[in-house]
């Protein structure tokens, strides 16, 4: 283990990226499921299932992004933008009448 990897900067970076992977991964997946459920023009349960199932692949996708992004700040920024977009879509679509 190199000295750089033991430093506080490396550890803070791993912590920030891990938090982005776990919290961001689940949060973006949950918002993805919610947005798809509200956007699909199908009866309620049929609109729920596809987004819910695909969300399980969104989770690892976001987690991988969190570690590949050029910096922890960029990782978090990407996740927050995706979350905001999905939340806006879900909010605009609104719950079914």
């Amino acid at each position: 283990m190199s000295a750089a990897r033991r430093g506080w900067r490396y550890r803070a970076n791993v912590t920030a990226r891990t938090a982005a992977a776990v919290l961001g991964g689940y949060g973006v997946a949950a918002l993805f499921a919610a947005a798809i459920a509200r956007l699909l023009p199908l009866p309620r349960i049929e609109a729920v299932l596809p987004g819910t199932m695909l969300a399980f692949f969104v989770m690892p996708g976001v987690a991988i992004w969190a570690f590949l992004a050029r910096s922890a700040t960029r990782a978090w920024a990407g996740i927050l933008i995706a979350a905001a977009l999905l939340a806006a879509l879900a909010w605009l679509a609104g719950p079914p009448a």
């Binding site: 459920a37 609109a47 987004g51 399980f56």
Partner: peptide, 21 residues
């Protein structure tokens, strides 16, 4: 993946929550 789907009501209830409250 299919194992996660079997427990979706616990693991990922947010799609259902968005339309069923």
């Amino acid at each position: 993946f299919t194992g996660l789907v079997t427990l979706f009501s616990l693991a990922m209830p947010w799609g259902a929550h968005a339309v069923y409250g």
